[in-house]
Design a binder for these strands. Sequence first.
RNA 1: GGCCAAGUAGCUCAGCUGGUUAGAGCGGCGGUCUCAUAAUCCGCAGGUAGUCGGUUCGAGUCCGACCUUGGCCA
Length: 679
Amino acid sequence: MKTLVTCALPYANGPIHLGHMVEHIQTDIFVRFLRSQGEQVVFLCADDTHGTAIEISAEKQGITPEKFIEQVSNDHQAVFRDFQVSFDLYSSTNSPENQHYAELIYNRAKEAGFIGKKAIEQAFDETANRFLADRFIKGECPNCGTKDQYGDACEKCSATYGPKELKNPYSVLSGKTPVWKTSEHVFFQLPKHEAFLKEQLAKPGFMNPGLATQLQQFFKKGLADWDISRDGPYFGFPIPGETNKFFYVWLDAPIGYISAAEVWAKQTGKAKSALDFWAKDADARIIHVIGKDIVYFHCLFWPSVLEVAGLKVPEKVHIHGHLTVNGEKMSKSRGTFINARPYLDVLDPNYLRFYYASLLGPGPEDLDFSLLEFRQRVNAELVNNLGNLANRTLSRGGDHLPKLGKTLSPANEALGGQLVRDALAKVKDIAAAYGAFDHRQAIKLILEIGYSANQFLAKAEPWKSAKTDLEAARGVLSEAAEIVYLLTALLDPVVPALAQKLAEQLNRPKLTFKALQTATYPLLDRNVPIGEALPLITRIEEAVVAKLVIAPKEEPKKKEAAPAAAPAGPAAEIEFGDFVKVSLRAGRVLAAVKVPKADKLLQLSIDLGEGAPRTIVSGIAEAYQAEQLVGRNVVVVANLKPRALKGIESRGMVLTSGPGGKDLVLLDPGDVAPGTEVK
RNA sequence: GGCCAAGUAGCUCAGCUGGUUAGAGCGGCGGUCUCAUAAUCCGCAGGUAGUCGGUUCGAGUCCGACCUUGGCCA
């Protein structure tokens, strides 16, 4: 049986960020594991290329949508490649194959009587000469009057409404007031699938049960017809038999899963067509991996569409949570919106792969990219526990101490048998964890194995016996090398490049999960010499991590010309009027980085509720590490005259108490909003 | 606003169908070794389980309300 695995198709309207990578890394781990088990897997993805947003982005750049999506696709593919995401093919929804399948599915649905038409009323921009989707209309909230709200919900009072209810609506495209026009749209008749869908959602393993429960609300409300057409101009596929109507992007996007398989089949010749996977009776299973934001597209519409077209419905839709950075949603203004390419510019992708794996569970909970946690966990677990284990074992057996040579000792059951058998006993659970997207459980078990081997070395103390009995020392290290060899299989899904390095240092091919199903002690053929050992991967430096979140540019605010308070003598009494000149505010530290070549200085990016964060340089580096400050509230003198410290303009001062140096404490204004006045 | 999910040590999480002193890793603190990437190993401290109420001989585990966070509402 073949397995087809897909990631959600990234929208071709912007760069890949670390949020995307949560999905692509966990799926890649899953796929690499399946391959290691010896399964036939095809791993596909594509860019989702249609819709108004892309058309407009292309127009802004003065290029065709085709050119635009080609550029984006190149960027996307390069990022995924550099993160070692092992797609068998990365395709595009703007392909002849996709058009073919979109039309085929549409025609089949039409023949089966599942397509209808209805006139709908929609906002129309007469200047731009196009209909406006809800997100292209803004106006005042009909509930609370907040300005510049989209046509579906108010960010301020969270009221929901239709675009027509907005007061003083305007088109985002032209700024003009839209008019209301009717247009006949094509609908997919979802209500006819209620029975099928209820059965599908109840299938064990199809999707997360909690989210399946949530989808029940659609049945309670009553399923509605799904609008699958958009009026031109629209970047997409024309609907056969209609004039100036195009398939809505969400119809043809998932069809990209099918057409990608078709392109793969054509290019590799490994299948006759996509139907080797997608035909109802194909000997294959299909697994989609998506974020929790697009559940109903994949679990309501998509299965229905496939069912009507007589195609195979996915066996499983794996749903994951979203990424936060330092505990909050990624935000451009906070400098925590981290794109994948800038990450790669400063850090090894294996760090992120390992970190995500160590956090990812099988459920749809969010996970946090905490800079401090990231550095600490990767350094402690991947570098110190596992990487150093390999190095302390192999360097001793390799060239580091030439006396020991490159050969291994014969297997010594009494010495290492227990160690290896205990480790092998965990392999089954590790495999089960990878197979269930419970990657953090897999990592946990692998770390236990690493720990047991480190402990083994600590007890056996080969460095001592080496002085009197080289053979005894070599025997101990040879047993530890068994565990290192085991790691080439166990770590391969998560950090394939590191597993490969280990295999090379051992001078053997990587172990596989398939081989491990029947493996017994000893794993290593002791007659094969080992290679040369080098440190596997180095620790993450604090300064490098901090580079990820410093906002690239901070616009200086002109309006706040700081009224300079006259400096008073140290103990001299001042008037109340002088005191109130000092503007004290609560601020939240968004980012912190050590100032190079300064022992005491930290450069802080502090939110004072002013829109853009402020840069403040503070002499607290001896008392606080940069990372532990992020997210913390502090008291700031907000109207201090700006001053340059080590060439960095500091716009304010952070208050502390204590004599200084290591002994000072940041004043805590409590849990209040940034910008709150301190009196 | 409606619905769904989550809320256990500073952080990330385990705790099976309710049953002895609530566990682990990371971080912190103290110690140890010296083969190794200032790594390892040993030990210590840390939790009135979001809040309130209920069921029960007994609840982190069941029920209700509320609070907080996240997602969805075609």
